[in-house]
C-alpha cells in the first residue's frame, strides 16, 4: 500500500492526511476542528453527509463522510444540518378516527399532493428508498404500503432538503408509519400482561432464591 500522504480540499481548506482515512478522519488528522455534523460514525445517522467531486471527474456525488475514503485532489463540502424549510407539526394522539385517517394525513402534509415527480428525493436518499413512490402511495391513501417503503429511513432529511415542493417526504413517511401502531396495533401477549399487572396478579419476590446473591458473592 502506498503510504504517501494525500491532500484534499475540504471547504476551501487544504487537508493532508494518510491514505486509508475517511474524510472525517482526514480532517481530524490534519488538526482541524470538526465537531458538528458528526454522529454515529457508523453510517446510520446521516449527520456527516457531504458533496464531493473527485479529481478530474465531472461527477458530483453525495456521500457519507465517515465511510468515504480520501483520494488525492478530492473536493469536499459538508452538507450541514439545514433548518427545515417547511414544517408539518402534529400530535400523534390527534389521529383518532380511522375513517378520517387518510384525509387527516393529507391535511397534515398538504404539499404531498403536489409532487412533481422529479425523482430528486430518490436520487438523494442514501438508503435507496423509493421516496417518491412512498409519497404518492400516502397521498392515494395506501398508508400501510407507504409506511413499508420508509421502513429503513434514517431520517437524514436529505429528501426534505431537496424537495422543491416542500413535501418533507421522510416526515410524511414517518407519520404514516406511526399512525398504524398508534391506532391499530394491540398485541395479544402485551394486552394480557398489562391486564395482569392492572389486576395486581403479578407480585414480586425480592428474596426469591434465584435472586439471591449469597452463593455468588
Amino acid at each position: 500500500m502506498d503510504h504517501e500522504p494525500i491532500t484534499i480540499d475540504v471547504e476551501g481548506r487544504s487537508v493532508t492526511a494518510s491514505p486509508g482515512r475517511s474524510i472525517i478522519e482526514a480532517v481530524w488528522e490534519a488538526g482541524h476542528v470538526h465537531v458538528q455534523g458528526v454522529g454515529c460514525l457508523g453510517g446510520v445517522c446521516g449527520s456527516c453527509r457531504a458533496i464531493i467531486r473527485r479529481a478530474d471527474s465531472t461527477e458530483v456525488k453525495m456521500v457519507l463522510a465517515c465511510e468515504t475514503l480520501i483520494e488525492a485532489g478530492m473536493q469536499v463540502t459538508f452538507v450541514p444540518f439545514l433548518e427545515r424549510l417547511s414544517d408539518h407539526p402534529y400530535q400523534i394522539d390527534s389521529f383518532k378516527d380511522t375513517w378520517q385517517l387518510v384525509s387527516q394525513v393529507n391535511q397534515t402534509f398538504p404539499e404531498a399532493a403536489h409532487c412533481r415527480h422529479c425523482g430528486g428525493c430518490d436520487s438523494a436518499c442514501p438508503k435507496g428508498i423509493k421516496v417518491e413512490r412512498g409519497v404518492n402511495l400516502a397521498v392515494e391513501g395506501q398508508l400501510g404500503a407507504a409506511g413499508d417503503i420508509f421502513e429503513t429511513c434514517i431520517m437524514c432529511n436529505l429528501c426534505s432538503h431537496i424537495c422543491p415542493e416542500f413535501i418533507d417526504p421522510n416526515h410524511l413517511g414517518l407519520l404514516v408509519r406511526r399512525v398504524v401502531p398508534s391506532l391499530v396495533v394491540r398485541p395479544f401477549n402485551l394486552m394480557q400482561r398489562l391486564n395482569q399487572l392492572e389486576r395486581g396478579e403479578l407480585y414480586f419476590d425480592y428474596e426469591a432464591p434465584e435472586a439471591s446473591t449469597e452463593e455468588r458473592d
Binding site: G12, I51, T77, G120, A124, H161, I162, C163
Partner: peptide, 29 residues
Amino acid sequence: CGQCPPCKIGTRQISKVLRKIDTGRGRRA
C-alpha cells in the same frame, strides 16, 4: 427543480454561507 441533488443542495449551501457572511456572522473559513 429538484432532479439533481448537488444543484438543489449546492445552491442552498452557497446561499446559506453567503447569508452568514452578509449578516456579519461569517469568518475567513
